[in-house]
Design a protein around this nucleic acid. Structure first.
Lengths: 335, 335
DNA sequence: ACCTCCTTGGAGAGCGCTCTCCAAAGACTC
DNA sequence: GAGTCTTTGGAGAGCGCTCTCCAAGGAGGT
């Protein structure tokens, strides 16, 4: 048996297609008795509205694209707990609005084109773009295609697009203040990739605050936001500055790697070297000692991002919005 | 300007709508010169096929639902690296086929109904269901609704549905063999939630193998697949069996929690107590000492799940398929 | 040269829904 | 009680696409 259509329900209920549509969508007034009849007919036929047909006329799909633009490496972005947290936040908000996210990875030019195509086809109503690299071209492409878009993180070049972001510099300052407070005399930093705005900002904030506290120079080793890269970066730092007694790592994964190296070298954390991480994600708690870290409320930020998109979908005339979140220092054992 | 339609392209190229459609979709032969003309017209108008319209007639959407049925708790399922790995595997395969996953959480009855509705509306072509609890009702609901479905993990009750799974019992046996090989004389197990088939199977396999090796009784503490629950379970085990020198934890997160407790009690791992985890996910590597663990090839399994769904979408007459993966022991430092 | 077969383009009928318009009928005003 | 306004249901025109059918023309067989 073919799936029942509006027509079938209408015939069974003895009304017009329009009336059934009104009952289903709750638009306009429909006589209560008639409504009852229609509902029965729906029940009896097991009718479900066809999404494609509806979508064709309303020009709405009820889905949004959640685009994750890990620069380098395919689907292994998911090993970073960051993306899981973003996903969680987005899903958490969208589900309250009956909207569903379709997950897309944009890591090559080909896939970036796919994303734009996808949106232009009207397969989704808008895009949530989580990108790290400042040079990412998707924001402008999406903008050019007229796709409602919200970014996680400010765009590399100024453009009229909504975004949510963290005050990364403030986060860097928080970390510096903690190390200074602990009386560290020789501090170093493990930064994220420097083509990522957030990395630059965290470092800038950290350096500025250190400078204001009498540390004009801070040695920096660049990492790649992975535990292994943090491990390597800490190793380099240690070779050049064996006297280091305070380290700021630009995310928890790298902090974890750094702690490992320190321990391997027989140094105690935090007694010999204090370590401050960034993000406050799962590794911060799993790490021994547990990490003192700068909290980024990823879930809340992601949820906000979804919220901004939904509102701008409802009112297309709305101007771009930006929401900046404040980081927070979470003191645990490592610093 | 309104978005261009097939009609616009056809008019510009001086051909019929059908011809443009043929060029776009590559169906049937079209004269090369004409093709060229049409392609130019497409280029010129900036035409993109409308997804809803196409979907309405083809009855295909090019998306599948990736349903994650964490029993208890909303979107925090993503803190478990397991789901990130599943997502990665699924995305990795689907992208090669131009199919996109829409992420859905089924944690309440309401959301379960939503999932079924979603599929019945034809918003997606099929469902990938990742569920842990044996009592999950979605498989039968989906089956009843005639939705092509593939499960990650065998269904709680036998039913004609495709699935991929791991030989969890073999995994349990692998862990047992390792502890026996190390000469442990008093072993305990931290199981997963016992309403999860995989937990039961891992435990059964472990117990059977231990029994065959002269350990008729193995004390068990039930955990909940989180680090905290592993911590608590290990604590209980230690109270009742302070002499324990070998532990099998049913996933890495719990193993990590267990190791923490052991260390807190001044016990050395693996010298005093050997610990074997399960999954070989990120925490296994992050843990100090790094975990010896039973590897579950989650990404490959998830990719296979997607593949099975795609093939059954292509051939709806196909009978259910099941694919069982073999676990593997990964020896690191903890055992 | 006639007939058949194959290739290729066009016409047009939907796919299932929403929504604008219109008409009918009841509720008002004065 | 006539005219006006306000409900509420039905008719029907699309939304943009695919795909079946048909016709035209060229190739091949006899």
């Amino acid at each position: 048996m073919a799936t029942p259509t509006l027509e079938d329900v209408a015939r069974l209920a003895g009304v017009s297609r329009a009336t059934v549509s009104r009952v289903v969508n709750g638009t306009r007034n429909v006589d209560p008795d008639l409504q009852e009849t229609v509902r029965n007919a729906i029940e009896q036929t097991g009718y479900t509205p066809n999404h494609a047909a509806r979508s064709l006329v309303t020009r709405r799909t009820g889905t949004v694209a959640l685009v994750i633009s890990g620069a380098g490496g395919g689907s292994d972005v998911f090993v970073d707990p960051f993306f899981g947290r973003v996903t969680a936040g987005v899903v958490d908000f969208l589900r309250t609005r009956g909207v569903h996210p379709v997950l897309m990875l944009a890591d090559t030019d080909r896939t970036r084109v796919d994303v734009v195509e996808f949106l232009r086809q009207g397969s989704a109503d808008g895009a949530l773009l989580v990108t790290t690299h400042a040079a990412e071209s998707l924001p402008e492409r999406l903008l050019a295609a007229g796709v409602p878009t919200v970014l996680y993180a400010r765009p590399g070049r100024p453009m009229p697009v909504s975004y949510v972001d963290l005050d990364h510099q403030a986060g860097g300052r928080l970390a510096a203040a903690r190390l200074v407070e602990l009386g560290c005399t020789s501090v170093g930093a493990i930064s994220g990739p420097l083509d990522v705005l957030a990395s630059q900002d965290r470092l800038t904030g950290f350096r500025d605050a250190m400078a204001r506290n009498g540390f004009p120079y801070v040695p920096v080793a660049e990492g790649g936001f992975t535990a292994a890269s943090g491990h390597a970066a800490m190793g380099r730092l240690l070779v050049e500055h064996p006297e280091v007694d305070g380290v700021f790592a630009a995310n928890d994964l790298m902090a974890q790697g750094a702690v490992d190296v320190l321990l391997e070298h027989g140094l105690r954390v935090p007694q010999d070297v204090a370590v401050v991480g960034f993000d406050d994600s799962a590794p911060a708690l799993a790490c021994r000692p547990q990490l003192t870290t700068v909290r980024q409320p990823v879930e809340a930020m992601a949820a906000k991002m979804a919220e901004v998109l939904i509102t701008s979908l409802e009112d297309p005339e709305q101007r771009p919005i930006s929401v900046i979140f404040e980081p927070e220092l979470v003191i645990r054992a490592s610093a």
